[in-house]
Design a protein around this nucleic acid. Sequence first.
RNA 1: GGAGAGAUGGCUGAGUGGCUGAAAGCGAUCGCCUGCUAAGCGAUUGUACGACCCAAAAGUUGUACCGGGGGUUCGAAUCCCCCUCUCUCCGCCA
Length: 426
Amino acid sequence: MLDIKYIRDNLDLVARKMTERRADIDFAGFSILDQKRRDILKEVEGLRSERNNVSKEIGRRKKTKEDAQELIDQMGSVSSRIKKLEDELKGVEAELNDLIMVIPNMPHASVPAGAGSEDNPVIRTWGEKPSFNFSPRPHWEIGEALNILDFSRAAKIAGARFAVYRGAGARLERALINFMLDLHTEVHGYTEVLTPYMVNRQAMTGTGQLPKFEEDLFKVAGTDYFLIPTAEVPVTNLHNSEILDERDLPLYYVSYSACFRAEAGSYGKDTRGLIRQHQFNKVEMVKFCKPESSYDELESLTFNAEEVLQRLGIAYRTVTLCTGDLGFSSAKTYDVEAWMPGQGDYREISSCSNFEDFQARRAGIRFRRESTGKVEHLHTLNGSGLAVGRTVVAVLENYQQEDGSVKIPEVLIPYMNGVDRIASIK
RNA sequence: GGAGAGAUGGCUGAGUGGCUGAAAGCGAUCGCCUGCUAAGCGAUUGUACGACCCAAAAGUUGUACCGGGGGUUCGAAUCCCCCUCUCUCCGCCA
């Protein structure tokens, strides 16, 4: 969330940025509630102060056996007035909170204005798209022909938007997970964590999935648990309500997790294949850092994600999300899009974001700056490193051979127990 | 699932109705002392939200906060109720 004082002092700027983001926020209502809250607070605090003083005097008189009944009677009415104001205050604060929690983050000054994904500028491209002397097939055809992906049996046991991996397919998914985790822990300096896949409402609120996007989540019936849509949620919330030491920053975490998304509102989109599943695997990088370094950290985070594709030898491009395409909690996001020959298009395979202090304020994640002794909200970032299912898509489609087999990228061969090609047995 | 014990500041831990934002110890920071280190001595060691002041910072001041929520009371860390979490024992279980 945004700092309430910041909104109050920069109302016009915030309102303008929210329009760019296409977020419809009731700022007039905000101002009224904010003023009302402070008015009530002023009165109630004055009365509480009075009550504290008089109560002390009552205590003193009782000790010296003086009569205090008059003061006690007097405080009775003050207390009931306080109670009434406190109830009122609670209501106003709840309303104000409801409003503030659905205001998205402010886009960073470097984020280009735009309406949607078609306005995202490409900032770099890497690698050569493979050329085929046959027409490249989509991964679901390759995978089903090799009997390594099975969508119809997945539909039988779960439904649409699920997949069963089999044999070398399952091994490929696992190989990619291990390859990515090893790269980020051994080369890029991240600490691996393995977290719960279900979290409570507070954690979901901390990273911004709640209260606004509950319909995108799976909720576990009969409990107050939600299935995580990304490891960002448990990992970022690892430090919620903490004050970290400045010397411990930056913190780098990498976490493999299954991810669960309801995909409400995406009916008809990517209905075939592994691109859009209710459950998929992802290796996620999360950083906690000081405000002054978060944009440098965003660059290195994005390069860390890109390096996975470079080592796999898969062409990609990186785009900056424009204001209209930016996620709710993000101040700036780069999407890395891998070339997928079977789709004939670049597809998002990683999304790297700087949330600045937006999540840190929601989740209460702070650090103490040694030079001033003051606590400040730190900055959080995260990025996929990478979405594993989509990486399988990229490998199958980029490394497909005319005979229907799929070569295994060099770096994955050790993770595939020496297998360098997936071919159908018959 | 049953029975019991707990939750207090960076940590340990006192505190059973008012003088407690909270003893004491540890740790940390600064200073003194000191060939070096250690020891010793002294000081410091909240967070949030308001108000005042204000370019800002600083400062002054008020309120709240002892797991979370509600209640009793003139007054609650302290009494009562509900919830969450942790620990121990029994049962069950991968």
